[in-house]
């Protein structure tokens, strides 16, 4: 425990959790959505490696047909859940034709190759662009799920990630509404909470997580967090230079409400368009104040009961 154990920048969450100086460096994901092609190799690899049961949009409470398609583009998993640790979001947008033609993002386009000259003014013509993004547990520096877990099932690992120890979880469900990103969930029929482990078993064996290994475009990059952050800064600068002004990093800032994410993103639109909260904050930040208010209210109860016995007749 240190000054910023509950909130604020924290360089080494594993050390804060009590691991010795010889613990491995903190690892994470940098998901560069500008090169995601929506192939879902990550989702499939994750399901395979972690032996996750099938689920679908229906399980996520959004209806869905027999294939799990629910009118959400090519999305048939709906969101992260107890059996979906990687989720590819599909967003279909109509954008001014010139703008998206300025840069080559390998995005599907409605035009013949070469039909559009870069930067040419095409009036009010529009075209479709797809945003695709592979979402995952953020492995927060300050993880609300871990903070609120009453059994100690959720732990910080030596790699700086956040892990559910399934042999301890009693399915109290507290982590689920605590997560500001809506990641962790209870598996129906099992009762316990599940989420991305960053393939803890593979990390121990010196392997990369399954999703990053399977990703054909290196949209999902795995590595030491410091390296990933530097790489992301470079990628952002180069995209900005190419005129992709809407590119932005999400979750890389150690001064944000969760002390920075262990899994962060390069996005091409506002976070909420991908189903991500624009300004997440770990609920624990306000917990000291919550306890103070609860103590004041409890004293009010004690005083009210005490006063009721004063001076009254039998």
């Amino acid at each position: 425990m240190g000054a910023n154990s509950w909130y604020g920048p924290l360089a080494d969450p594993s050390a804060d959790a009590g691991y010795g100086a010889d613990h491995p460096e903190r690892v994470g994901f940098f998901t560069d959505t500008s090169v995601c092609i929506g192939c879902k190799a990550c989702e499939v690899a994750c399901k395979e490696w972690n032996a996750l049961p099938a689920d679908g949009v229906a399980e996520q409470g959004a209806g869905g047909d027999v294939l799990g398609m629910a009118g959400m583009g090519y999305d048939n998993t709906g969101g992260l859940g107890a059996s979906t640790y990687r989720h590819v979001a599909f967003v279909e947008q109509r954008v001014p034709a010139t703008r998206s033609a300025q840069t080559d993002l390998d995005m599907p386009s409605m035009d013949l190759p070469g039909a559009v000259t870069s930067g040419e003014d095409r009036g009010d013509a529009t075209e479709v662009r797809w945003l695709m993004s592979s979402d995952v547990c953020k492995h927060c520096t300050h993880a609300a799920c871990l903070d609120v877990c009453p059994t100690g099932s959720l732990i910080r690992t030596e790699h700086g990630t956040v892990l559910v120890q399934e042999d301890i979880c009693n399915g109290c469900g507290y982590c689920i509404p605590a997560c500001p990103y809506g990641v962790i969930d209870q598996r129906k029929g099992d009762g316990r909470a599940f989420k991305c482990t960053m393939c803890q078993d593979r990390l121990g064996a010196g392997l990369q997580p399954a999703c990053a290994t399977a990703c054909p475009t290196e949209s999902i990059q795995f590595g030491p967090l410091d390296e990933l952050r530097a790489r992301a800064d470079e990628r952002l600068a180069s995209l900005q230079e190419q005129g992709v002004t809407e590119a932005r990093l999400y979750g890389h800032d150690q001064d944000d409400g969760v002390g920075g994410d262990g899994a962060f993103f390069l996005l091409l639109d506002e976070p909420e368009v991908y189903g991500l909260p624009p300004d997440p904050v770990v609920t624990t930040r306000d917990l000291p104040s919550m306890w103070r208010h609860a103590a004041a209210a409890a004293l009010t109860v004690a005083a009210t009961v005490g006063a009721a016995f004063l001076g009254g007749r039998r």
Binding site: A178, M290, A294, A298, V305
Partner: peptide
């Protein structure tokens, strides 16, 4: 007894649920 009456307010407020978290000052009362 008095602690029994208000810790549950913190239980709800200490989540990302907007309707509970934003009410953390009022809920204990």
């Amino acid at each position: 007894g008095p602690a029994m009456t208000t810790y549950t307010a913190v239980l709800l407020a200490d989540t990302a649920v907007p309707g509970w978290h934003e009410a953390y000052r009022e809920l204990p009362f």
